[in-house]
């Protein structure tokens, strides 16, 4: 075979002047995590709001919620990245568009990437939130009304605290998804982990060493998140319920 392995490549200096190749990869990991965490905050916030309005008795609110979810589910993430990065700044007023485009790197690409990942994942979180609320017995909502709570109060004090605890496991897998999906941001020049591995390949020509390192790092991150999730799930599980079940996985990543 014509491929020359060189596992010591990680400790060689990268030509971008920041340090060794290994250092470049860890900087990439940092961006991956920053991207995933910020987008996750947006996804949770928007997802809970949209999920809730899809379960309210108000039909028009429910329709808006449904339209929101369909919009983000039926366009590929890559295309959504392009919409946020290339299209959005041209459609807003020129001054704002220019301000967005001239944000110093990496923010000019990082901010659209966070917004894109956040909204994309929020549609998926909304699905989980809705399923969680719908899984509660109808009596709970009625009990709230009977106590004289308003609709928002019923959600705030009765439905949401239960629903959110129930959906912790599926939310955990959505968090794993957001880490993986953040790699799509490399198409708009965010130098996250996969992009750092690709850059390492371009500079050093050591294709497989670069991708092996990235793969191992992703697996380790995954492992850490899974362990953390297990801890959280145990802490937060609703007493008296059967608990994490192995139901059919929904389609998706």
């Amino acid at each position: 075979m014509h491929y020359h392995w060189n596992w010591r490549i990680y400790w060689q200096q990268s030509p971008d002047g920041s340090g060794t190749y290994l250092h470049t990869l860890f900087v990439g990991l940092g961006w991956t995590l920053a991207l995933a965490l910020l987008a996750w905050a947006i996804a949770l916030l928007l997802g809970i709001v949209v999920g809730v309005i899809r379960t309210t008795p108000l039909r028009w609110l429910e329709r808006i919620g449904n339209a929101y979810v369909e919009l983000f589910r039926n366009i590929p993430l890559l295309v959504q990245m392009f919409l946020w990065y290339f299209v959005m700044p041209e459609l807003v007023p020129t001054a704002l568009g220019d301000w967005i485009k001239q944000m110093p790197p990496p923010w000019g690409a990082f901010v659209p990437a966070v917004l894109c990942l956040g909204t994309f994942t929020s549609a998926r979180v909304a699905e989980q939130v809705r399923a969680g609320i719908n899984s509660l017995s109808r009596g709970q909502g009625m009990a709230g009304t009977a106590l004289g709570l308003t609709l928002p109060q019923t959600y705030r004090y009765v439905l949401l605290p239960m629903a959110l605890r129930i959906i912790v496991p599926p939310l955990g897998s959505e968090f794993l998804n957001i880490i993986k999906n953040s790699a799509v941001a490399l198409t708009i020049n965010v130098v996250e982990l996969t992009a750092s591995a690709r850059a390492m390949q371009e500079y050093s020509f050591q294709v497989f060493e670069a991708f092996t390192a990235a793969t191992v790092i992703y697996l380790l991150v995954n492992l850490v998140v899974v362990l953390l999730m297990r801890l959280i799930e145990r802490k937060i599980a609703v007493p008296g319920l059967i608990g994490p079940s192995g139901g059919p996985a929904p389609a998706g990543h």
Binding site: P15, D16, G17, P104, P105, N189, V191, A199
Partner: peptide, 15 residues
């Protein structure tokens, strides 16, 4: 990259 490292150009480089 070389301009940045050897001559301290302080550029933001995009790929």
């Amino acid at each position: 990259n070389k301009l940045n490292t050897s001559r301290n150009f302080g550029m933001n480089i995009l790929a």
